[in-house]
Amino acid sequence: MEQHATISAEGLTKIYEDGVCALDHVSFAVKPGEIFCLLGGNGAGKTTAINIFLGFIPPSQGVAKIHNVDIHRDPLEAKKYVSYLSDVVMLYPNFTARQNLDFFARLGGKHALTRDDYYTALRRVGLQEKAFEQKLKGFSKGMRQKVGLAIAIIKESPAIILDEPTSGLDPKAANEFQTTLLGLRAQGKAILMSTHDIFRAKEIADTVGIMNEGKMLAIKSRKELEHEDLEQLYLNYIHGKVAA
């Protein structure tokens, strides 16, 4: 039998209270050791899908599963297996980078971590050493993003969900991030991330899902994309030039 998907969506549909249909029967799956990029314009429904995976909102229809647990049925059980980076990373301004990390690590069930572990994680996401013990107040957007990323990886959960993790990162940091991500993939994590960045998506994604107006227009594997111009493909899909 085929390997189990760690993150899977089956016919996810979300209609908001005001009638906006943000997701329309979206299905996909992310296997261990796979990076799945959700690609789509503003308002395509990426954050909505991610919110459903974390149980922040219930789906109107369909099932979202993490580690084969229906997030909507048993949210607490499902959340054991997922870590997350949100689209707005402000964190606690009065805490230092390490303190923020410490708090969230313990929330994620990691109680026995040492200072060195935290430093290792922060180093891994490329935060400069001198910022480790500084309060988040003075951090730039990218620096906060890195701390957020550290939070996401320190939990060492099988599923990782990232909402626009590279926004605000400088090229060097983005590059480091990519390396980190590849490392995680090598560890067998299932990674779901949303992004606007077509080029990076093409570089690291094992699978790309192109979304527009709540619909999953296409799911392409790395092999399928190898010889295609992803940007052109994306624009074509968005403008409906290619049938889904």
């Binding site: 974390l54 149980g55 922040f56 607490l76 059980e77 959340k79 054991k80 997922v82 870590s83 997350y84 980076l85 949100s86 689209d87 707005v88 990373v89 402000m90 964190l91 606690y92 301004p93 969230f104 929330l107 994620g108 069930g109 957020g148 939070i151 939990k155 969900i161």
Partner: peptide, 15 residues
Amino acid sequence: KEGGTLKLIFANQIS
């Protein structure tokens, strides 16, 4: 919520 930490917290196994 404004700090974005609420989501991060509830991405964990917390009631």
